[in-house]
Write a protein that binds this DNA or RNA. Structure first.
Lengths: 242, 242
DNA sequence: GTCTATAGTCGGATAGAC
DNA sequence: GTCTATCCGACTATAGAC
């Protein structure tokens, strides 16, 4: 389908700037209208670029879409990566004794705090999110880029931290489900954005609202991690008869 | 924009059946390709109907879209409504003494269980969800239909139950946020469907997987409701300095 | 109420001048 | 590397036969 006749990496010239403008505009336009709904004319106009620049630089509309997914994955990795790596570092740097429970809890809260900030604040995330969620529910090749780029790492870290806190193996089904439910608490404010605004009577989610969300999620994390602490042997109870 | 030249309600004739087929097909096609991406040709073909039937019965593509949103709201209300009304009934039928904490907890779990079943099982929900989430992140007139139709009621019930369980007013900011985070735990399995499948190593979410999700969410509800029980005076702690 | 045929518009991609 | 002009297919909606 794709015939990308250019695979430029080097940059700095005028063409490189055009590619950047097209990608930036594409995040918004693809997010708003979907892949099929976004016309190359709209994409080019939003970027202040020529229509023919899309087939020229990206081989076509699909190439621009995939390039946009890569860009998003890089931006997210840029923001979450440092925190994630620090968490990973602290995890391997210490033993899993009962003494580091508080440390794990803090790391978990920090990871979710950072993720909430990334996901929920208005800035750019609202544009990424529409594209990402679309890929979640109707995956194309772009989903591989997004998942491998960042989601996998975050989910694994969450499961590791929860495993430590609850004494259940990180690859246990219940542990992995707990990781997902924690993430879901944060993601909901993007994926059900309009409903959340109405429920809260907010007209947007700014720094104050973000802080309120983070506070509630932190409390929930404490409750969930605390309630199931040391139930390594009971974890099977949540497993379900087939 | 819309000029629906027909507003048929009575039914049973052949035209009514065509309208139904078009709406059913539209849930899938609009969900997959988005509003702009869904062509009237694709919509008509998927429904086994003639292209001209869309402007005829619904006044145009937009009319079909809004009719589809109404249909979805009705189907969801059909499924969640009975449980929600029973919950609402039991809530008004008793006093808010400490004795009914267990009852509130059961009702809350039942509501979320039912919602998980609705949201997460493959059957039809995957089709609705794409359309609904699109509206959440980029609302059009269809969002009003969906929100007023069902979401408002569910969110209010959740907040009421959580308020009872924690001793915090249902309209308190923290209580409403808690309601959203609970819902988010369930919704994530739809809105981040592809990532959830990979995280769990599942290839689909069937009855067994649904049961595992419900079990974890139930545990989380107990933990969250239990941990913040009777902190009516502390609720302000989660409020945030402006 | 449903169909075919068609009008009028817009879609993505390309050719070739600069 | 960027532009204009253009091809051709697909789009939504309508007209009018049945």
């Amino acid at each position: 389908m794709i015939s990308s006749r250019r695979a430029r990496v080097s940059g700095g010239d005028r063409g490189d700037e055009t590619r950047q403008r097209l990608i930036k505009a594409a995040i918004d336009v693809f997010g708003r209208f979907g892949y099929e709904g976004a016309s190359t004319r709209a994409l080019a106009e939003a970027a202040g670029a020529n229509l023919a620049a899309i087939p020229y630089h990206f081989g076509g509309k699909e190439g621009l879409y995939l390039a946009t997914a890569s860009y998003i994955a890089e931006r997210i990795a840029e923001r979450v990566g440092p925190v994630a790596e620090r968490v990973a570092g602290e995890l391997t740097g210490e033993e899993s004794g009962p003494a580091d429970r508080d440390a794990c809890l803090r790391l978990l809260q920090e990871l979710l705090d950072r993720f909430a900030e990334l996901v929920v604040l208005e800035e750019e995330a609202g544009q990424w999110a529409r594209l990402v969620v679309r890929e979640q529910m109707h995956p194309t090749r772009a989903f591989e880029i997004l998942y491998d780029g960042i989601m996998k790492k975050v989910l694994r870290l969450l499961a590791t931290l929860i495993g430590r806190l609850t004494g259940v193996a990180p690859d246990n089904e219940v542990t992995r489900l707990r990781a997902l439910t924690l993430l879901g608490q944060v993601l909901m404010f993007r994926t059900a954005h309009a409903a959340a605004l109405r429920q809260m009577g907010w007209d947007k989610i700014g720094p104050r609202e973000l802080a309120a969300i983070q506070a509630v999620v932190r409390e929930n994390v404490v409750a969930i991690a605390g309630a199931s602490a040391g139930d390594g042997d009971k974890a099977g109870a949540a497993e379900v008869r087939r």
